[in-house]
């Protein structure tokens, strides 16, 4: 269990398994419900366009305690494929991204950070993982470098 006691909704894991086994879904974005009790799926998509995915993270919002909507953190799983630079073919790595923009409020950031473990532990078969805190961190090139460890 995570340190915040937040729980997962039932389809979080099953959708992930679908991504892992059927290879149709390219990414899943998870969010916390507005009452911060449960992690739910915000979106699962078969569209492999990284920029569209990135745009969705950047424009994510979350309500703070005063009810104001500000920038919001998210969790995401992306089935990331890349070509090896050595020409030995394509690799695909299921990557876990903890997106927490620096300019989001302290409250949502705190809750996402302390609840991350609950989700991550439930998902089996993650090949890579990183935290991203500003828009540069989720540029395609910087993610590629991180996930491929410089081999792409």
């Amino acid at each position: 269990m995570s340190q915040s006691g937040v729980s997962l909704s039932g389809d979080c894991v099953s959708k992930f398994n679908e991504l892992k086994l059927n290879k149709k879904i390219k990414y899943i974005i998870y969010k916390l419900t507005d009452d911060y009790k449960e992690i739910v799926i915000e979106e699962a998509s078969e569209d492999g366009d990284w920029e569209a995915f990135r745009e969705k993270l950047v424009s994510a919002t979350q309500k703070n305690k005063a009810g104001k909507v500000g920038k919001g953190p998210r969790y995401a799983v992306y089935d990331f494929s890349y070509e090896l630079a050595s020409g030995e073919g394509t690799r695909s790595k299921i990557t876990f991204i903890a997106w927490s923009p620096d300019d989001a409020g302290i409250q949502p950031k705190m809750i996402y950070a302390s609840s991350k473990d609950a989700l991550k532990r439930a998902l089996n078969g993650l090949a890579a993982e990183f935290q991203a805190n500003d828009e540069d961190d989720i540029e395609y090139q910087s993610v590629l470098a991180k996930v491929s460890k410089g081999l792409a």
Binding site: M1, S4, G5, V6, M110
Partner: peptide
């Protein structure tokens, strides 16, 4: 950090 954690509704089970 403690203030946020302690105010979470879900934290009461911890």
């Amino acid at each position: 950090g403690g203030s946020v954690l302690g105010s979470l509704g879900t934290f009461h089970q911890m």
